[in-house]
Design a protein around this nucleic acid. Structure first.
Ligand SMILES: Nc1nc2c(ncn2[C@H]2C[C@H](O)[C@@H](COP(=O)(O)OP(=O)(O)OP(=O)(O)O)O2)c(=O)[nH]1
Ligand SMILES: [Mg+2]
Ligand SMILES: [Mg+2]
Length: 443
DNA sequence: GCCGTTTTCGGCCCGACTGTTTTCAGTCG
């Protein structure tokens, strides 16, 4: 069984128990376990089969959770989970995906109004029953009806590049305002997660309202979803949502720390503060009510006896242990890329010549490239046969004579044909510096 | 349900916004 499936079952268990009103800290334990298992490089099933005692060494996994993990691996499920699923229909759990509707409201709708399905929910909202209930109203009725319409998009995430382009554009424009002092991306975008659930932008300013007015008026912004004195949530035209947080200048570091997250990283920092008789929030690090630090992230980490931790690893996944041991990793950066071993030219479906590719690579600081145009099977890209390939390589020799400081390798992206043989003969492939073997057809 | 170099019991991060409320619960970041 995959780790992700074990993790999913704990998540589901937590959702069901939450609707039942279970102890929130117990739910947190289940969710932390799910997160740990999800992010584990080793197979939990392998651990269970070889040395189940090891499970309890995982952070946040104790005796009970270890036992549950063993049962899930051995029987594919958990009796407790199956029982809860009998009691609470899947549709009722799905109601949690409606923004603004949480476990308390779902529990009320299910147990007091006997709402068992999304259809029941829609009907109850439409005929006004929900709005009459204590703690509910017209607005909640509206939220539910809208939420039901958009349920299929709930929890949608977008790729980092797509998110960052919009975040960068808005940050660029807001940074022009006189009322904006500092501005930064935050959240999962700053942590460079592969996918991003929403955009988070932090601003320091003494005039939050002006900043929010400017965001509202921005061409990428479609709708204001919420607005208070210090934060605003908007929906962009793309459908992505953006959280803007505005704090005073002296809180910049503490607020950036808070808003960059992750949530779990924040909780560890806040516990660490408590242990030292301090309190950490987005406004700073406080002793009693006196500000101790908060101007920069580094200040806050330093007061907590930690080095600055790069956003990319702020996930409470061993970064604190690494920081304590002075063994934080040197993260790979763009400048560490030394070459590119997959490149096309106008000989097939590229748009630049060998020389242009070499010059472009050199400008990026690369030390080597490999020209790897297509082989003949890829007819739509004008793929190379042996003769044209050898001519291209001769051309590479000529270009190599004209440019210094970068090595151009003679390569080929050679198709593996449907029968498993190579698209070009071995003798020509053996002359190459670099061969990419690739499947384009018969997949 | 987990955890502990003060603790094996009693804590568990802390604050903003909204709707429905007349003082705050629920939800969310
Ligand atoms: N202290 C604390 N901080 C939180 C909590 N929830 C969120 N944050 C902080 C850390 C998050 O990275 C940041 C932005 O919240 P988001 O919900 O947008 O999460 P994030 O951007 O990490 O992930 P996302 O890709 O948007 O799902 O706010 C919380 O419960 N407590
Ligand atoms: Mg976010
Ligand atoms: Mg957010």
């Amino acid at each position: 069984m995959q780790n992700s499936e074990i993790a999913r079952q704990f998540e589901e268990l937590a959702d069901l128990l939450e609707i039942q009103g279970a102890n929130p800290f117990r739910l947190r334990a289940y969710r932390n376990a799910a997160r740990t298992i999800w992010g584990l490089p080793d197979s939990v099933q392998d651990i269970v089969e070889s040395n189940p005692g090891e499970l309890q060494e995982l952070p946040g996994i104790g005796k009970d959770l270890a036992e549950k993990i063993v049962i899930i691996v051995e029987t594919s499920t958990l009796p407790q989970l199956e029982e809860l699923k009998e009691q609470i229909p899947a549709d009722v759990v799905r109601m949690l995906d409606i923004p603004g509707i949480g476990p308390k409201k779902v529990a009320f709708l299910f147990s007091e109004l006997s709402i068992q399905s999304l259809d029941d929910l829609k009907a109850a909202a439409e005929n006004g029953v929900i709005a009459e209930q204590k703690g509910f109203g017209k607005k909640t009725e509206q939220i539910i009806l809208e939420g039901l319409e958009h349920l299929s998009q709930a929890g949608n995430r977008v790729r980092l590049a797509e998110a960052k382009a919009q975040s960068d554009a808005i940050i660029h424009d807001l940074s022009q305002l006189d009322s904006v002092q500092q501005i930064s991306e935050a959240g999962s975008c700053r942590r460079r997660k592969e996918t991003v659930g929403d955009l988070d932008v932090l601003v320091t300013s003494s005039q939050p309202a002006e900043v929010m007015d400017a965001l509202e008026a921005h061409e990428l912004v479609n709708k204001v979803l919420a607005r208070g004195d210090t934060k605003q949530r908007v929906r962009l035209n793309s459908g992505l949502e953006l959280d803007l947080r505005v704090v005073p200048e002296e809180s910049y570091g503490a607020a950036l720390l808070y808003f960059t997250g992750s949530k779990e990283h924040n909780i560890v920092l806040r516990r660490r503060s408590q242990d030292r008789g301090l309190k950490l929030n987005e406004y700073g690090l406080f002793r009693e009510d006196e500000l101790v630090s908060g101007k920069t992230e580094e200040d806050v980490y330093k007061t907590l006896e930690l080095p600055w931790i790069p956003p990319e690893i702020r996930e409470n996944r061993l970064e604190f242990e690494a920081a304590e041991n002075d063994s934080l990793p040197d993260l790979i950066e763009l400048k560490d890329i030394r070459g590119d071993l997959h490149m096309h030219t106008t000989a097939t479906d590229g748009t630049a010549s060998i020389l242009e590719m070499a010059e472009g690579a050199k400008a990026k600081g690369y030390q080597y490239i490999a020209i790897t145009d297509h082989s003949k099977r890829v007819t739509m890209a004008n793929g190379l046969d042996a003769k044209r390939l050898r001519e291209l390589w001769k051309e590479i020799d000529k270009v190599q004579d004209k440019i210094s400081g970068i090595q151009i390798l003679k390569g080929i992206e050679c198709d593996i044909l449907e029968d498993g043989s190579m698209d070009l003969p071995d003798d020509v492939l053996s002359e190459a510096d670099w061969v990419i073997a690739v499947l384009h057809y018969g997949l």
